[in-house]
């Protein structure tokens, strides 16, 4: 090996050419030179030379997301929602269950910007506290549906065979259950006032969608050459599935789950509106909208604020899902 000779100043540095230029660009000669060069004088890593950071799909996606205003706005709003559902006292000092009948349906007044509802409860406070139920149900139901759905769908897609056929038919059955009718039937027998029956019901109806997505993307991912290569190197099924297939199949699941989160929140509100979702004393936008609906001519402010909060929240999650899809799906770029 010859001593590395002093080189003319090169701002990029040796070896760097290769890192920046993908194979597709630059003609055959370029590549040949590149290759020959790196063989002739290997290893002269100049520590001062700027080196492009290794970028994976995820860091690439993050890079793109940060510059997408839709993502920034929706994620800031969601962050705000999460914070106020954890600590509603931060922006609402009152008690959502403290009501004065004497103030029934009054309009806004100092300290009570959204006015009062029929029971004389402060609409502002109730709207703020209502975020907790929506966010809890949305996040828990999405996590449950995504974990259950991608585990079942992923295994079915990877192994195929009769398990796959069975799962697909079972998923079809759950797809066939009409959401509102199913909710009325299943949830009307429940007496619990916690959020869990609602979460459970949404998971039950939501997992087939995510299982289908996961199954499809696992089937696509397992046909890649690198899966066969990993098998040829002696990797077992568990390793192939977890390390080679799953990371390459998870993006669509994340996208669909994010969008589903918004629809699950809307579904919770729908069920609560119908009286089979969350029950008082739990504070929920759906319950408040239901109570306000009959009074819309007398006191439209009662309906406006919880409905607006619900719409914005659902919109934020759907926009977030859209932005994530744009970032994770290179084909759409």
């Amino acid at each position: 090996m010859p001593e590395p000779e002093p080189q003319p100043y090169d701002p990029v540095g040796p070896g760097e050419n290769e890192a920046v230029a993908p194979t597709g660009q630059g003609g055959a000669m370029d590549l040949a030179l590149d290759e020959a060069e790196s063989l002739e004088k290997p290893l002269d890593p100049d520590p001062s030379a700027p080196r492009e950071r290794a970028r994976s799909l995820w860091s690439d996606a993050w890079h793109q997301l940060r510059r997408n205003p839709v993502f920034v706005i929706s994620s800031l709003f969601i962050l705000f929602l999460v914070v106020i559902s954890l600590w509603p006292q931060l922006i609402a000092s009152g008690d959502p269950l403290h009501c004065e009948l004497s103030k029934s349906q009054q309009g806004s007044s100092p300290g009570h910007p959204f006015g009062y509802d029929t029971q004389g409860c402060d609409v502002y406070t109730r709207t703020v506290y209502g975020a907790r139920a929506s966010i809890t149900v949305g996040i828990c139901a999405t996590l449950g549906a995504a974990l259950l759905g991608s585990a079942l769908g992923g295994l079915a897609g990877f192994f195929g065979g009769w398990g796959d056929s069975l799962l697909s038919r079972v998923a079809d059955i759950f797809f066939g259950i009409p959401v509102v009718l199913g909710g009325l039937v299943f949830l009307s027998v429940v007496t619990s006032t916690t959020v869990w029956p609602v979460v459970g019901f949404i998971v039950l109806l939501g997992w087939p969608q995510l299982a289908r997505i996961a199954r499809g993307s696992v089937i696509t991912a397992k046909q890649n050459d690198y899966v066969q290569a990993a098998r040829a190197l002696g990797a077992g099924n568990a390793r192939i599935l977890l390390r080679h297939v799953a990371p390459n199949a998870v993006a669509p699941v994340i996208v669909v789950a994010t969008i589903a989160l918004g629809t699950y929140i809307a579904l919770e509100a729908t069920l609560s509106f119908l009286g089979v979702g969350l029950r008082p004393p739990t504070v929920s936008w759906g319950i408040d909208i239901s109570n306000a609906a009959s009074q819309i001519r007398n006191a439209p402010h009662m309906l406006l604020w919880p409905a607006l909060a619900l719409s914005l929240t659902v919109l934020a999650f759907i926009m977030l899902g859209d932005a994530v899809r744009d970032a994770l799906d290179p084909k759409l770029r």
């Binding site: 194979t23 290794a54 994976s56 799909l57 995820w58 890649n224 050459d225 690198y226 066969q228 290569a229 990993a230 098998r231 040829a232 190197l233 002696g234 990797a235 077992g236 390390r243 080679h244 990371p247 390459n248």
Partner: peptide, 25 residues
Amino acid sequence: RRRIRGAEMAMIFQDALSSLNPVLS
């Protein structure tokens, strides 16, 4: 057989780009 694959016999594939997992270094 799995213990033999990779350890005692190994394979080099045609297209290295598609034979390497894009999400792993």
